[in-house]
Write a protein that binds this DNA or RNA. Structure first.
Length: 584
RNA sequence: GACCCUAUCGUCUAGCCCGGUCUAGGACGUCACCCUUUCAAGGUGAAGACACGGGUUCGAAUCCCGUUGGGGUCACCA
C-alpha cells in the first residue's frame, strides 16, 4: 500500500490566512503567509473572502500582521491592535509567519519577558489567533480528513488528522471523515475499517462521515459543468502513448507536461478514434497564469500555471479522479480549510482553478511539511514501525502519540497531555514550521512513560483487567504508574503485589532480622517508615544498605515503585515469606 | 532530468524580513551534582548548533552569489 495518502495527505489548517505571495526560488524570500493584512495579499481574492472580520475588528488584515520578532509579550499576545502589517517577507526560513506573532513565544525566552525592555520596538504583531480570525459571523469552520482506504494509517496521516481535528475543536468547527474511495481497484473496505479504528483509538472522533463512492453522480455533474464551460477536454492517448511522450520530453531535458495535442483534434478525428473503440479521458484546461494562494503554514505560495500539467479529471472508464472529487466535495461540503500534506501543493494549484471553474471559491489551504523518520527518510517510503497499528500493539498510548504530534514542528514544548483539549488549547496551525520534522520513536517512548504516569485509574482499569491484572485497583495503579514504560509493564508489579516473586537475598541474617520487626497488619503507607526505622535501630544499617536488601527481597528487583506504597499491597504473609527467602 | 519546498544544539525550535543587544535563547534527551533511608521524581549545573564556499560590511546566523544535503511533485493513484 503506498502511503495512505491521507487524502490529502496533509492538511491545512485554516487559518485564515492570507494569501501570500510566493516566494521564489530561494525560500528565503518567501514571506510567510502573511496575514491578511498585507498588502500583498490582496492578490488573492480568495483569501480575502475567507477572512472575514468581525465587527469589531474588522479586518483581519490588519490584524494579521506580521510578526516579527519581537519579544512577545508575556503571554501570548493578542493585542488587539493589529497593525497592518506590511508584508514582511521573511527571510529564509521564513519564519515570519504571521501568526506567530501571536503566540509568540510561549516559552519565553529569558529575556524576552522583556518586552518591557524594549519598549521601543513595538513590533506589530498579529493580534488575533487563528481562531479569533476565524470568528467570522457567517462562516463556521469545517475541515475534513480524507484518507484513501488503500493502506493503514501511519504517523504522518495521524498528524494531518490531528491537526485538522484540533483546528476544528479550537474553532468550534466540525470535522468530517471523508473516505476517498473513488479508486475502486485499490480501495478496500478493511482499510476503511482500520482507519476508523485508528482514529477512534486516537480519540479523533468525527462529526460526520462521507464516502466518495456514494457521490459519483455529483462528480459526473461537476464534470459536465466543466465540459460546458470548456474547461474539460477529451484526450485519446493511451497510457503507453503518454508514457512515450513523457520519455521523449525527459530525454530532451524538458518537463514532462502534456502537450495538449488533443485540443487540436477535429470532430472527425475524434469520431474516428471513438469508432476505433477508444474512450476518452478528460483533462482540465489549466489557465497558464500565475497561481497564488496564501498558505496558512507557508505564507504566500506561488505557482507558475504554465508548468502545471493539465490534470486528468475523469478516466476513460468514467471514474472521477481525486483532483475533481476532492474539489467538488470541498465545495459541496462547505469545507473552509483544507489542511493537508505538502505533497499536495500541485493538486492545490490545480484546485485553485477548478473551484472557480465550478463557480465556487477555493477554501483556505494549509500544507504541512512532510515528516520524515528519525533517519531523515520520507515516511511514505517505509511504514512499518511508524504505523499506528504497530504502535498500539507495542504499547504506545494514543495520547502519547497525540501529545507528540500536536507539538512536533512547533516552538512549543512537547509535554504529556492526557486529554485532547489540553492540546487544542493554544493550538495554532500557523505556529507549525515549514521544515519537515523528524518523527523519533525514542522520544515518543519517553513521552509515553510520562503520559502513563499521569493517567487516572479510570482511564486504565478496564485495560489492566484485560491484561490479566485482576487485582489491579486504584491504590495499585497509583503506586506503579510512575514506573512504567508501557501499560503492560504493570504486570511485573502486579505479580509483586498479588502474585509470586522470587526474592533476591544476599544477607539472610539481615533480612531475617528485618522480618522479625515486621509490624502486624493493618498496613498503610506509613508502615514502611515505622518498620524501616525499627530495622535501622536494630541493625545499625541505613540508607542504601538498609533499603536495597529489603527491596530486593520484597520485589526481586533493584528498582521500581516506592516500596512504601507497595508494601501494603504485598501484605504481611508474602512479605514475611520473601524476607525469609521463600518464593511467594 | 525538470520544477517546487526545506536547511540553527542528538531532537523540536527561537532569532533571520529591519546586520551589532547572539560569547546564538528555550524545551526534550544526555551527563554531573544536590536532595531523598534505593530507583524514579524534584532542584542546580554542564556539554551540545548557525550545512559549505565566496562576497558586501567596521561588523553577518541575519544581506548577496554559488554549492551541497534532505524531502516532494512531475499517473487514466490519491
Amino acid at each position: 500500500m503506498r502511503r495512505l495518502r491521507d487524502p490529502e495527505r496533509r492538511l491545512q489548517d485554516g487559518g485564515l490566512c492570507p494569501v501570500a505571495l510566493a516566494q521564489s526560488g530561494q525560500a528565503r524570500r518567501r514571506a510567510r503567509p502573511r496575514r491578511p493584512g498585507d498588502p500583498g495579499e490582496r492578490a488573492d481574492p480568495r483569501a480575502d473572502g475567507r477572512v472575514e472580520a468581525q465587527p469589531d475588528r474588522p479586518r483581519f488584515p490588519a490584524a494579521l500582521c506580521p510578526v516579527g520578532r519581537h519579544p512577545v509579550v508575556p503571554g501570548r499576545g493578542r493585542d488587539a491592535g493589529g497593525r497592518g502589517g506590511q508584508a514582511r517577507p521573511s527571510a529564509r526560513g521564513g519564519r515570519a509567519r504571521v501568526d506567530h506573532a501571536d503566540a509568540c513565544r510561549i516559552q519565553a525566552a529569558p529575556g524576552a519577558a522583556g518586552c518591557e525592555d524594549h519598549p521601543p520596538r513595538l513590533w506589530p504583531r498579529s493580534s488575533l489567533s487563528d481562531r479569533q480570525r476565524l470568528r467570522r459571523p457567517h462562516m463556521s469552520v469545517v475541515v475534513r480528513f480524507a484518507p484513501s482506504p488503500t493502506g493503514r494509517m501511519h504517523v504522518g496521516n495521524a498528524r494531518v488528522a490531528l491537526v485538522n481535528w484540533l483546528f476544528a475543536r479550537r474553532n468550534s468547527g466540525s470535522f468530517i471523515l471523508r473516505v476517498d474511495d473513488t479508486d475502486t481497484e485499490r480501495s478496500r473496505q478493511e482499510y476503511t475499517e482500520a482507519i476508523r479504528e485508528d482514529l477512534t483509538w486516537l480519540g479523533l472522533l468525527w462529526d460526520r462521515t462521507e464516502s466518495q463512492s456514494a457521490r459519483m453522480d455529483r462528480y459526473a455533474a461537476a464534470a459536465d459543468r466543466l465540459r460546458q464551460a470548456g474547461r474539460l477536454y477529451p484526450c485519446y492517448e493511451t497510457p503507453e502513448e503518454l508514457e512515450r511522450k513523457r520519455k521523449r520530453q525527459l530525454a530532451r531535458g524538458q518537463p514532462p507536461l502534456y502537450d495538449r495535442a488533443a485540443l487540436k483534434l477535429t470532430d472527425e478525428e475524434k469520431h474516428k478514434l471513438e469508432a476505433e473503440g477508444r474512450k476518452p479521458h478528460w483533462r482540465f484546461l489549466i489557465e497558464r497564469t500565475e497561481i497564488v494562494w496564501n498558505d496558512v503554514v507557508h505564507g504566500e505560495w506561488r505557482f507558475d500555471g504554465a508548468k502545471l500539467n493539465d490534470p486528468v479529471l475523469v478516466r476513460g472508464d468514467g471514474q472521477p479522479l481525486f483532483p475533481l472529487s476532492s474539489a467538488v466535495d470541498d465545495i459541496e461540503m462547505g469545507i473552509t480549510h483544507v489542511i493537508r500534506g505538502e505533497d499536495h501543493v500541485s493538486t492545490t494549484a490545480a484546485q485553485t482553478q477548478i473551484a472557480p471553474a465550478l463557480g465556487a471559491e477555493a477554501p483556505t489551504f494549509a500544507h504541512l511539511p512532510l515528516m520524515s523518520d528519525a533517519g531523515g527518510q520520507g515516511l511514505s517510503k517505509r511504514l512499518g514501525s511508524l504505523s499506528l497499528g504497530e504502535m498500539r500493539a507495542d504499547g504506545i498510548e494514543a495520547m502519547a502519540v497525540n501529545s507528540y504530534l500536536a507539538r512536533l514542528g512547533s516552538p512549543d514544548p512537547i509535554v504529556p497531555a492526557i486529554r485532547l483539549d489540553e492540546l487544542s488549547e493554544g493550538f495554532e496551525v500557523s505556529r507549525l514550521g515549514r521544515a519537515g520534522p523528524k518523527f523519533d520513536l525514542g522520544e515518543l517512548r519517553i513521552l509515553n512513560a510520562k503520559v502513563l504516569a499521569l493517567l487516572p485509574y479510570e482511564a486504565v482499569s478496564v485495560r489492566l483487567a484485560a491484561l490479566g491484572m485482576a487485582q489491579a485497583d486504584e491504590r495499585f495503579w497509583l503506586a506503579v504508574r510512575g514506573n512504567l514504560e508501557k501499560l503492560a509493564d504493570a504486570r511485573q508489579w502486579h505479580d509483586v503485589c498479588h502474585g509470586e516473586v522470587r526474592p533476591v537475598i544476599d544477607d539472610p541474617a539481615f533480612t531475617a532480622a528485618a522480618a522479625k520487626l515486621l509490624p502486624e497488619e493493618p498496613w498503610d503507607e506509613r508502615t514502611w517508615s515505622g518498620w524501616t526505622g525499627a530495622v535501622k535501630a536494630a541493625t545499625g544499617k541505613s540508607g542504601k544498605g538498609l533499603f536495597m536488601p529489603v527491596r530486593l527481597a520484597l520485589t526481586g528487583a533493584d528498582h521500581g515503585p516506592e516500596v512504601k506504597n507497595l508494601l501494603p499491597l504485598i501484605g504481611r504473609p508474602r512479605a514475611l515469606a520473601r524476607l525469609g527467602g521463600k518464593t511467594a
